[in-house]
Simulated assay, not measured.
Amino acid sequence: MKKKIGLYFGTFNPIHVGHLIIANHMVEFSDLEEVWFVVTPHNPFKKKSTLLDDYHRYDMVYEATKEYPKLKPSNIEFKLPQPNYTINTLVHLEEKYPNKYDFALIMGRDNLKSLHKWKNYEVILENYSIYVYPRITEVENIAVLKNHPKIVEVDAPIMEISSTFIRKQIKAGKNIKPLLPLTVWEYLDKMNFYR
């Protein structure tokens, strides 16, 4: 039987405790057996200028997840042509691990609203489950996705922490250490990032 893997895509700039809480909730309270943090080199919808180097962000995800056997860092998108799209990553993963894993996507409920703008979103919905966690900015049910057989709502805790907030507070000289895994805080501090 294929192992069920949740793919949690993000720039993780930086990864914070909110990301870990959601990922851990997914592996403990759904049928997902592992969550892979897919570090995105460049999201087509985001400006690249604010991003730390890909490998620094990957290293922080590695540091944050190394104590959790069901949570794994993934740099699979680093080798793909940029800008990359989720469908390309899924095709690449299927080719790399034929018949080994059953992949699913993890996303915040607010992201469902823009799913129809994704490249080949119909193909994604047809072939992959999407595990959705609530966000503080609840959105109306998206008619086409309401009761869709591939959408799995997971009652995860609502996290109001964002990487943007963390970057701003570091720059402002605030102590945000409790919002980050200790190893990530030490990495940022040592490298003098976001100051």
Rank of each mutant, 00 (worst) to 15 (best):
L51P: 00
K66N: 05
V39C: 06
F45Y: 15
Y62I: 08
E67Q: 12
V35N: 05
L32I: 14
V39Q: 05
K48T: 04
P44S: 11
A64Q: 00
L32M: 14
F29A: 01
D59E: 15
N43E: 04
Y58Q: 10
H25M: 06
P41N: 08
S49D: 07
Y68N: 15
V27K: 02
K46P: 03
E63F: 07
F45E: 14
R57W: 12
P44M: 10
L52H: 03
T50L: 11
V38E: 02
T65C: 09
L32F: 13
Y55N: 15
P69V: 02
E63D: 08
S49T: 15
K46C: 11
N24C: 02
K48N: 14
E34Q: 12
K72L: 15
P41H: 07
K48M: 10
F29N: 14
H42Y: 02
S74T: 00
Y55D: 15
H25C: 07
T65Y: 03
K46S: 13
N43A: 09
E28K: 13
Y58C: 04
E34G: 06
Y68M: 09
M26Q: 06
Y68W: 07
W36T: 05
S30T: 15
R57E: 11
L51Y: 09
S74A: 13
K46H: 14
H56A: 09
Y62V: 12
T50P: 01
N24L: 11
V61P: 00
W36P: 04
P73Q: 12
K47R: 06
F29I: 06
S74I: 02
A64R: 10
P69G: 00
S74F: 04
V35T: 08
K48S: 13
Y68G: 01
L52K: 10
K48D: 11
F37P: 02
D31W: 10
V61W: 01
F37G: 00
F45S: 13
S30D: 01
M60E: 08
E34W: 09
V61Q: 11
F37S: 07
P44A: 09
T65M: 07
W36D: 12
E28P: 01
P41L: 06
D54E: 14
V27F: 10
L32D: 13
Y68Q: 09
S30R: 02
W36S: 04
H56M: 10
R57K: 06
P44E: 06
N43V: 04
F37M: 07
